[in-house]
């Protein structure tokens, strides 16, 4: 039995494949960060090695070894942030060496289990050489090998690699489901659970981690605080922010885009508050700030602003100067009247 939250469709699909002995040799599990890709992959790996009934049974020795990361035939290939011993420093990609090791291992018989399982984390971050080497293995897989590629950005996985995998799209969980899990399994009080569930956007891993007092929640609060400030801020603070965000884009595009999505959700919350639909907002703990900002703008202004953010999102994909695009967006954004902000 699979022990994952949500993803009923994917679980049913895998259960049927397992029952009929028709597991493919390669899957691409795609979905946003913290949605449960690795959890599902590990469950699937356990199922592939399981010796009990209704795999993964969770109690047999192979299941337990997979769960504790000790199984010799279940390998996780990931970007090595610490860098190798060769002193080349932290890596930003999965290199060819890691794939070569996998190729070597894949052609040996499994060490202790029934088959080799290779879990490739961030499959979109393989170097071109690594992806092409993996492609060869995917095209002519040795027997008894299962590849599980995970990606938050499936369109950026090498298309030839992508086309050799069965695609399994993992959607965010319903907010109510996340809240229920937090309440019932992680003993979070109802109010906090609801707030975290909404902040998590259905990515249950994030919600669970945040509920355990990790830095995730604090970082999110800080980002929201900044956005709230900018909404009420003057042009000078807005331009400083545009500069900062443009730099972030340079370092890490995904993080930059993520910030813009946060903007969209914030503006949506303002709109909901304006329409007296405050119970649907994502940022429950910010209710007062949202109410103040909802009063300071007209609905039309907020809609225009929202379109501005969407335009930036489009522009950055077309290689428009990010800083310029952000500055234009913030320049066109309405300012809070001095009286209102005082």
């Amino acid at each position: 039995m699979f022990r994952v939250h949500g993803h009923a469709l994917a679980v049913r699909y895998f259960e049927r494949s397992l029952r009929e002995g028709r597991l493919h040799h390669a899957y691409l599990l795609a979905g946003p960060a913290h949605v449960g890709k690795m959890t599902l992959a590990l469950q699937l790996a356990a199922a592939a090695e399981c010796e009990g009934v209704d795999p993964p049974c969770g109690t047999c020795k192979p299941c337990r070894r997979v769960a504790s990361g000790q199984h010799a035939d279940v390998r996780v290939i990931a970007v090595d942030p610490t860098g190798g011993e060769d002193g080349k420093g932290p890596r930003t990609q999965i290199g060819i060496d890691a794939v070569h090791d996998a190729i070597g291992a894949a052609h040996l018989r499994p060490y202790e289990g029934k088959r080799h399982v290779f879990i490739v984390q961030d499959a979109d971050r393989m170097s071109a050489d690594a992806a092409n080497a993996l492609l060869k293995l995917l095209e002519e897989p040795p027997p008894d090998v299962l590849f599980l590629l995970l990606s938050t950005d499936a369109p950026n996985v090498l298309p030839t690699v992508r086309s050799r995998c069965a695609l399994v799209d993992l959607k965010p969980l319903p907010v109510a489901e996340v809240a229920r899990v937090l309440r019932e399994e992680h003993h979070v009080d109802a109010e906090h659970a609801e707030s975290l569930a909404r902040l998590s956007r259905g990515c249950i891993g994030w919600a669970i981690e945040a509920s355990q007092g990790s830095a995730l929640l604090a970082a999110m609060q800080q980002r929201l605080e900044k956005i709230a400030d900018i909404v009420e801020g003057d042009l000078e603070t807005r331009f400083a922010y545009a500069d900062e965000l443009a730099r972030r884009f340079q370092r890490d595009r995904a993080a930059g885009r993520d910030e813009l999505y946060l903007w969209l959700r914030w503006l949506r919350d303002i709109m909901l508050t304006q329409q007296d639909r405050g119970d649907g907002i994502a940022h429950l703990t910010w209710r007062d700030t949202l109410a103040r900002q909802a009063a300071a703008f007209t609905p039309a202004q907020v809609v225009r602003w929202l379109h501005g953010v969407l335009e930036v999102l489009e522009d950055v994909d077309r290689n428009v100067n990010t800083r310029l695009a952000l500055e234009v967006m913030l320049l066109e954004a309405p300012a809070v009247a001095p009286a209102a902000s005082a």
């Binding site: 052609h107 040996l108 018989r109 060490y111 040795p142 027997p143 008894d144």
Partner: peptide, 8 residues
């Protein structure tokens, strides 16, 4: 010494 065999 125990070694895994190469498949094929």
């Amino acid at each position: 010494m125990v070694s895994q065999l190469i498949q094929g």
